[in-house]
Write a protein that binds this DNA or RNA. Structure first.
Lengths: 110, 110
DNA sequence: ACTATTCATCGTAATATTGCAATGAAACAA
DNA sequence: TTGTTTCATTGCAATATTACGATGAATAGT
């Protein structure tokens, strides 16, 4: 069906899945890494940096923006994208809590 | 197309995307949380715990197993699934390095 | 006004994912 | 052996994702 039954899971579980889904494509990982690396906004440099077509990059940027992880400022004909540090921190807290579940447990069973 | 062009990205980027994709569905998040919580489990318990049909749970477990994050031991008619702590640690290193990119940077630009 | 540049959106094709009923395979009990 | 339990696999339908050409909207330069 391709339809995730979100209503049967907790808000926490759905939030983790949403963030993870954003990182679930190498193009979006590459975009975020590049935005961090140059530490100042880029626009369509991403199209050159990554090998995908402009509409494709634009689509990935839109998804990241909808999640709030990045923001974009219009500057003349170009758009300046950069990481939203506050949102990134919040996301990191949620994901870290999930990844660090193993710290409290003791040993394997199998 | 629905086809990620993995060849145009680094191994690092593809690995992050693969792990993230595993967490990109609330059912798999719920499965992992439950496995951590009770520190061992069988498929049938998960079917009751989570509200999905048995074949669906089995499919999600298979994906997590293929990634190496969990392992399953056959015990009579049932199968005991649990977290693979070593793999989980390795995954955590990769994901943490990605999430912690912001630590080195200074300020926003937008 | 005209043109070029930059990015967003639309439309569409190809592929992937999700979910489950039906069925199969293996272990166990009687 | 027969039936039961437990999980895996198959097959299929519904939906989601990815990618890009074509096109639109806005700005800037001439």
């Amino acid at each position: 069906m391709g339809l995730a039954k979100t209503e049967m899971f907790t808000d926490d579980q759905n939030e983790i899945a949403l963030f993870a889904k954003a990182f679930g494509h190498p193009a979006r990982v590459a975009i975020l890494q590049h935005l961090f690396k140059i530490n100042s906004c880029v626009c369509g440099d991403l199209v050159n940096e990554i090998g995908l077509a402009q509409p494709t990059i634009s689509q990935h940027l839109k998804e990241l923006k909808n999640l709030g992880l990045i923001k974009g400022d219009v500057e003349g004909t170009s758009v300046c994208y950069c990481i939203d540090n506050e949102s990134w921190s919040k996301m990191k807290k949620v994901m870290s809590a999930f990844l660090d579940q193993d710290l409290t447990k003791t040993g394997d069973c199998c």
